[in-house]
């Protein structure tokens, strides 16, 4: 009998779980997306409908198209805000110092906080009667004083984005800090000796070397934004109306409020396609040799 090489039995448990818990559902959902299955009516999958679920999504479901639009706004604003804050904060606290290392340690806190709790908390802070953030923002920006945040489509979207940025920007700051730390200090010093002002050092030497890390941050944050569900569910419930209903939230609604499994699987696959494309970008960025 041939001996089984050690890497096979070392890999077998983990890989079979990954296959069962991730790859199998990936295939199953794809199959499901070609079938009709209203769970409320029947416990078993219904007829094969080909691409009808997909066709319905794009041709006759304004709610899906709105969700696409909301997703685009949410992801774009979320990624840009997170990148800007993470880069700014990282540059600010990269120097040694007691306050800066305190800030670095505190950056972990929002990241390990339950996103559901963050959504709930932001909802509380924005309450028009006794919300502390509603009150403070009203004092700083009088134009917003009387507005009910979660009843206004634009403000609600801003609130949802803000809660997600609060959750992720500190973590991304740590990632950017890691990137800054990996830049050889001598290159920045050489630039200063060569006559570069602080701004020129940043523009010509620091930023170009940081770009790969910023790329990783951008792709990762895009992925997390596309998958964002908890904060939206607990903060705005996708509302007012469907103003903050992103694709991930839409899939949940179709599957577990309308119990339209085939249709949900089709919508989920639109999201999956986007994420798989991003994962290729991500793997290229991280594993390029």
């Amino acid at each position: 009998m041939r001996r089984i090489p050690p890497h096979v039995w070392l890999l077998a448990p983990a890989l079979s779980f990954v296959a069962a818990m991730a790859l199998f559902p990936l295939g199953y959902s794809l199959v499901l997306s070609f079938r009709e299955w209203k769970l409320a009516a029947s416990g078993a999958p219904g007829a094969w409908v080909g691409l009808a679920n997909y066709w319905l999504l794009v041709s006759d479901d304004p709610e899906f198209l709105e969700a696409l639009a909301a997703t685009a706004v949410f992801v774009a604003a979320d990624v840009i805000a997170t990148l800007a804050i993470a880069l700014g904060a990282a540059l600010l606290i990269k120097r040694a110092g007691r306050i800066n290392s305190l800030a670095r340690v505190l950056m972990i806190l929002p990241f390990v906080m339950s996103p559901a709790l963050i959504g709930i908390s932001f909802r509380f802070f924005l309450n028009p009667e006794f919300g502390i953030a509603h009150h403070l923002i009203g004092m700083l920006v009088p134009a917003l004083a009387g507005r009910v945040w979660l009843a206004d489509p634009t403000l609600a979207m801003i609130a949802v984005i803000a809660s997600d940025v609060w959750h992720w920007a500190p973590y991304m700051t740590l990632v950017v800090l890691g990137g800054l730390a990996s830049i050889p200090q001598e290159t920045e010093e050489a630039a200063r000796v060569d006559g570069a002002s602080p701004w020129a050092v940043f523009r010509d030497v620091t930023l170009p070397q940081l770009l790969p890390v910023l790329g990783v941050v951008a792709v990762l944050k895009t992925v997390f934004a596309l998958k964002a569900f908890d904060t939206i569910y607990t903060l705005s419930n996708g509302g007012p109306g469907t103003a903050t209903q992103t694709l991930a939230y839409f899939v949940y609604q179709v599957a577990f409020n309308h119990y339209d499994m085939g249709y949900a699987a089709a919508a989920a696959y639109v999201l999956t396609a986007a994420l798989l494309v991003l994962s290729v970008f991500y793997l290229r960025l991280v594993f390029r040799k």
Partner: peptide, 20 residues
Amino acid sequence: VPTQRRDVAMVFQNYGLYPH
């Protein structure tokens, strides 16, 4: 006087070349 206005040139131990 900040470094960039001292008009000195320096060769670093690890050279500090701009990799990009």
